[in-house]
Amino acid sequence: MTDETKKKLEDKIVGLVKEYDGKKRFKPVDIVKEMEKEFADEGLSKDDIKSVLKEIMNDEKLVYGYAGGSFLTLPDNKG
């Protein structure tokens, strides 16, 4: 995965969560599936997407929440 693709993927994931903040809860499993489709032409594997997601979470660009299942959300939503 090139740095450029990685950046694009990161922006896409964070952007999606931002766009739907308060309207839809994204489960990590759904995001990975969605990105697999979206980035099919660039040949990204599930593991590639998971590793980018891991970096996003480590950098706290997004955080995890829980409501009957785990979901991704913005750090501002953390108490």
């Binding site: 979470m57 480590n58 955080v63 995890y64 829980y66 409501a67 009957g68 785990s70």
Partner: peptide, 17 residues
């Protein structure tokens, strides 16, 4: 009330809200 926003940096598990 269960769940919500509780956690430590980088982890999505380990702290049960």
């Amino acid at each position: 009330k269960h769940g919500g926003m509780a956690g430590v940096r980088g982890y999505g598990a380990g702290l049960v809200g």
